[in-house]
Amino acid sequence: MLDVLASEELPAPASTDKLPPAPALQACARAAPAQTGVYLFRDAAARPLYIGKSVNLRSRIQAHLRNPDEARMLHAAQDVVWQLCAGETAALLLEADLIKRWQPEHNILLRSARSLCSLQLDQDGARLVSAREYDFASSPDLYGLFSGKTRAFAALRELLEAHALCPQLCGLEPRIHGRPCFSHQIGRCRGACAGVESSAEHQARLRAALHDMRLLVWPFEGPILISEGDAAWRQHQVVDKWCWLGWIDEGARPAPPLAQCLEHKKSRRAGFDADIYRILLKPLLSGKLDIRAAPPDWRTQLAHPAPAAAAPRPRKEKAHEASRAG
Results as ranks from 00 to 15, higher is better:
L65M: 02
A27R: 04
R30N: 00
I61T: 08
L84R: 14
A32D: 02
V80E: 07
G37L: 09
C85H: 10
A46R: 12
E70H: 13
Y39E: 09
Q83D: 13
C85Y: 11
L57C: 04
N56A: 04
H64Q: 02
Y50T: 12
Q83I: 12
L65G: 13
L84G: 00
D79T: 14
Q62K: 07
Q26A: 02
H64W: 10
V81F: 02
A46E: 12
A32E: 02
R60F: 07
I61L: 08
P33H: 09
P68Y: 07
P68A: 06
G37H: 07
Q26S: 05
V55G: 07
Q26H: 04
Q83G: 06
Y50I: 14
R60K: 13
A31W: 00
V80R: 07
A63K: 10
V81R: 00
A31T: 05
R60E: 01
A71E: 13
A34S: 14
R60A: 10
K53H: 04
A44R: 15
R58H: 06
A77M: 15
M73S: 10
A71D: 13
F41V: 15
L84V: 06
P33K: 03
C85V: 01
G52K: 02
S59I: 02
L65P: 13
L65T: 08
D79V: 08
Q62W: 12
H64P: 10
F41R: 03
V38T: 10
A31F: 01
A46I: 01
G52T: 14
R66S: 09
W82D: 06
A27H: 08
A45K: 15
A77Q: 13
L57S: 07
L25Q: 14
I61P: 03
Y39M: 08
S59R: 01
R66N: 12
A46C: 08
C85I: 00
A27Y: 04
R72G: 13
N56P: 15
D69E: 11
M73V: 13
L40Q: 02
F41H: 05
L84Q: 06
Y50M: 09
V38C: 01
W82T: 05
R66K: 15
D69F: 00
P68S: 04
S54C: 05
H75M: 12
L49C: 11
A76C: 06
C85N: 04
T36W: 00
L65A: 07
Q35G: 04
P48L: 12
V38W: 09
N67Y: 11
A46L: 03
A76S: 09
Q62P: 00
A63V: 04
P68V: 14
V81L: 03
F41G: 05
R60Q: 03
A29R: 12
Q35R: 14
A77N: 08
A71L: 10
P33S: 00
T36R: 00
P48C: 09
E70N: 08
L40Y: 14
Y50R: 11
A45L: 09
P48D: 11
A76M: 13
A71G: 06
A76P: 09
L40A: 07
V81G: 05
A32L: 04
A45S: 12
G37R: 11
Y50F: 13
V80I: 15
I61G: 06
Y50C: 09
A76W: 14
D79L: 10
V81S: 11
L84P: 01
M73K: 08
A46V: 00
I61V: 15
Q62F: 05
M73N: 04
S59W: 06
